[in-house]
Amino acid sequence: MAGKFVGKQTVTFSSTPSVLETFSIVGPMEGRGPWGSEFDTVIDDEKYGEKTWEKAERKLVIEAVSQLLAKSKLQPSDIDFLLAGDLLNQITSANFAAAAFPISFFGLYGACSTIAEAMILAAMLVDGDYGEKVIAAASSHNKSVERQYRFPIELGVQRPPTAQWTVTGCGSILLGRGDKSPKVTFATVGKVVDMGAKDSNDMGSAMAPAAADTLTAHFRDLAKNPSDYDLIITGDLGKVGSSILAELMEQAGFPLAGNHIDCGASIYAEDEDVHAGGSGCAALAVGFGSHFYPKMLRGEVKKVLLAGTGALHSPLSTQQNETIPCICHAVAIEVI
């Protein structure tokens, strides 16, 4: 294994790239949630003044990237790479949004793990001296995703208790060289795990084994324990997936020390009809960017492990009754 590898799946960063800035934009329902006041922008019309839901999602991405640039007082020419992805077929939201910026672009698909995937690759690019400043972004839109994966929006469907509600929003994160804390210290790149789940209305129990696999690899590779982190932050396991993860980690010998928090399960107000919680690429992207990153800046939280989980199925694979392969990428961020 190359010099920056620790153990089997984990990499280190000799220059420890910094998380320089974040920007989050979310929909009205996310704005009503407990983190509502912390997001940079809350839109009040989910269609965002556009003609289609897909255009609305694209505009969220454009807004998240351009506002991140403005917030960091940078021009597009200052950015070396843009890494972005979303849930729509052929990641059209990210692709079309990237057309608005003269920045070299990598389109990523890791389903809801995309922001973690993007942050790891961004940190690698910076650490490998390929770029000084890299933007990682991920978006999802409740309506565009619902249309693609499930049913027409106005169709009367009763959702099972395991169903999750796709978060509308986009989170963008600027990584780069510098002294500013927090910094990216380790990353564990996940393997695809397929435990035979088939129910596309139950992402939590499909993804939990992937999360357990990557977290276990992370702790094993680094000879650490869950309690070494202040918080272990997952993206969208929801309530069902979170409770399964706790049991799997217990079995693996790395019991979570009450420091696990799931963005999907936390982003909505208690009285919203979202069943097992939120899901989608945006959950972890905006949750980290607007809730946990500021906490780190204030020094309230010093060491976090972000674990982005993704269900890598498609509407077609679901129709063909295939199982749901899943992945989880973990990235450690520390105030040094």
């Binding site: 208790p161 395991t162 435990m195 939990a208 097992a276």
Partner: peptide
């Protein structure tokens, strides 16, 4: 795993 998950599914 499906057996284990079942216990957690409401």
């Amino acid at each position: 795993y499906q057996q284990l998950a079942k216990k957690h599914i409401p």
